[in-house]
């Protein structure tokens, strides 16, 4: 506990370095490309187009009806896809944060968690921009989200805490076991389909008791995944304009706290030997 507090103090004291590391990530990411920053919007745009064509137009997934009678698959998708992209970005970024900076860790002394936090924070900046674009799109399509911006921002922070905890955990795991990255890649793929991003959650929650899903107890297992609740909360607020239930909010807060606590303790437990393990 004492170690945690002193680590927190150290982290806070080096916030300026954190800022510089974030700037490094942001500036370095698209340096040398001719489109530069546009890439941070083009990538989600491309996946939006693909999912809209495949699931909206070809497979004809029916999106739920949102606020003010809004029923638009693309917007329905984006309300969940953007948080998902942020989550998977943090998990992947966290995994690479230590390995990618091996030289820095071996040759200089500074609080190592800053590298993971910088990866998280720089992605959060992109996340903010994407969400701002989405808000404009929602406004254009008649579902005025202005009242919901602040709660959404809070939810984004809770998601960031949740994802960063995992990122911290995986960053050290990947140093000690290099194939963590490959397991996580598979895990993320499974998780993507196990989260109602491209389809409405009603497809899972409203199954009849004798269906295959219910008989295999997939539906009860399904809701163990905290991301289901995160994504639904985003959709509740931005697409349907109502607050998520108190139970959901509790689940979100508890999973963020548990993830952060576990990530932080695991990271501090194993970060001492990073310089020699890298």
């Amino acid at each position: 506990m004492e170690g945690t507090i002193s680590q927190l103090r150290v982290t806070f004291a080096s916030r300026e370095l954190l800022g510089n590391l974030v700037l490094r990530e942001l500036r370095g990411k698209y340096k040398g490309t001719s489109l530069g920053w546009l890439w941070s919007l083009l990538n989600p745009l491309a996946s939006t187009v693909i999912f809209t064509v495949v699931f909206g137009a070809i497979l004809r997934v029916t999106p739920t009806v949102g606020a003010d009678g809004l029923q638009n698959y693309t917007l329905f998708l984006l309300c969940a896809l953007l948080p998902w992209n942020y989550f998977s970005g943090v998990v992947n970024g966290g995994m690479g944060a230590l390995l990618g900076n091996a030289n820095l860790i071996k040759k200089t002394s500074f609080p190592r968690q800053l590298l993971v936090l910088a990866a998280t924070a720089s992605l959060f900046v992109t996340f903010l921009i994407e969400m701002a674009v989405l808000a404009v799109a929602l406004l254009v399509f008649g579902a005025n989200p202005l009242l919901w911006l602040l709660p959404t921002l809070l939810l984004m922070v809770v998601l960031a805490v949740f994802a960063t905890g995992l990122g911290l955990m995986l960053s050290v795991a990947n140093v000690y076991f290099r194939d963590s990255a490959h397991f996580v890649a598979i895990g993320l793929q499974v998780l993507f389909y196990a989260t109602p991003v491209i389809y409405p959650i009603t497809l899972v929650s409203d199954v009849s008791p004798d269906s295959l899903v219910a008989r295999l107890h997939i539906d009860s297992l399904y809701f163990v995944n905290p991301l289901v609740h995160f994504v639904e909360a985003f959709r509740d607020m931005l697409y349907e304009h109502h607050l998520p239930g108190l139970g959901t909010v509790l689940v979100l807060l508890v999973s963020a706290a548990v993830s952060m606590w576990a990530g932080w303790s695991i990271f501090n437990r194993f970060s001492g030997r990073l310089a020699e393990e890298l």
Binding site: N20, T108, F110
Partner: peptide
């Protein structure tokens, strides 16, 4: 500690940005 010079320089960033970055890694304030 000078164990390796320019450890932590980001190749794509300018010398100016890297001075700020490296300086803060070494514990200098802005």
């Amino acid at each position: 500690a000078l164990l390796e010079l320019g450890a932590g320089f980001h190749p794509e960033l300018s010398g100016r940005d890297n001075v700020y970055l490296n300086g803060s890694i070494l514990g200098m304030s802005r």
